[in-house]
């Protein structure tokens, strides 16, 4: 039994199909609990009032925006090294989910920023980093759609993902250098004294778990779709000779 067995398209679909409803159901339950708990059963912040509650969407979305890019980096590497098609297709499938998460983080950031900073948009390093991440997702997806041959597209987007990751990280630190920013520190770092209080912390954890489950479920669903599309193309190619 090797973990690479699941890189076979049929095996991947056969294995993930029964799991998928549980993942999606789990996402629905945890998100409902987390968001209802966070929105209605936590006290208002003494400084930020009820606006702070957008944090239950903002922080998990931002985390997933980054985590999905990291996942794409890993699957791109697996494709380049081991040539497993499912890996490349998983990266392709994850990108639109990542870009939506980035957009949610940007949008909720703007909505939160308006009452807090008095402006919808500030060139704050963290917000700016997410805007840059959005551009990287955009380029990555554009390259996938521009190339007709599946394997060529997988190769080139993987190389772009590797190089892009390095530059995304560089941009992150360059942006810090460029503007010190208004943004509060990391909300959920484990050691910081500025960390949020437990009453906010537990529902936030539930929300994060919900976003993780939702993202995993969507990535699996979209990967299955990509596999089936690829299979349809392969069958069509064989029939037309």
């Amino acid at each position: 039994m090797s973990v690479w067995e699941y890189a076979n398209p049929k095996k991947f679909i056969a294995t993930t199909t029964p799991v998928l409803p549980w993942v999606m159901g789990g996402a629905a339950v945890t998100l409902t609990i987390g968001l209802v708990w966070g929105f209605f059963f936590t006290p208002d912040d003494y400084r930020q009032g009820s606006t702070v509650k957008i944090f239950y969407l903002h922080v998990p979305a931002a985390m997933m925006a980054i985590n999905i890019w990291v996942m794409m980096l890993v699957t791109s590497l697996i494709w380049l090294i081991r040539r497993h098609h499912v890996s490349a297709l998983a990266a392709k499938a994850a990108a639109p989910i990542g870009i939506v998460m980035t957009l949610i983080a940007l949008f909720t950031g703007a909505v939160w920023g308006q009452p807090m900073w008095g402006t919808w948009w500030a060139w704050d390093p963290r917000l700016t980093s997410f805007l840059i991440l959005f551009l990287f997702y955009l380029g990555y997806m554009a390259l996938w759609t521009a190339i007709e041959d599946d394997d060529t597209a997988a190769d080139l987007t993987s190389v772009l993902c590797l190089v892009g990751s390095v530059f995304a990280l560089l941009s992150r630190y360059a942006v810090n250098f460029w503007n010190q920013g208004l943004h509060q520190g990391a909300s959920l770092s484990l050691d910081a004294e500025e960390n949020v209080a437990d009453v906010f912390w537990y529902p936030a954890l539930v929300c994060i778990a919900g976003f993780v489950l939702l993202s995993v479920g969507l990535v699996i669903l979209r990967t299955q779709t990509e596999i089936r599309l690829r299979r349809a193309r392969a069958l069509q190619a064989r029939m037309t000779g």
């Binding site: 076979n8 398209p9 098609h85 599946d150 394997d151 596999i227 690829r230 299979r231 193309r233 392969a234 069958l235 190619a237 064989r238 000779g241």
Partner: peptide, 13 residues
């Protein structure tokens, strides 16, 4: 042969 193996689509057929 039309069903020859080894192509990049093979895993999907």
């Amino acid at each position: 042969a039309p069903d020859a193996g080894g192509g990049s689509d093979e895993a999907f057929l």
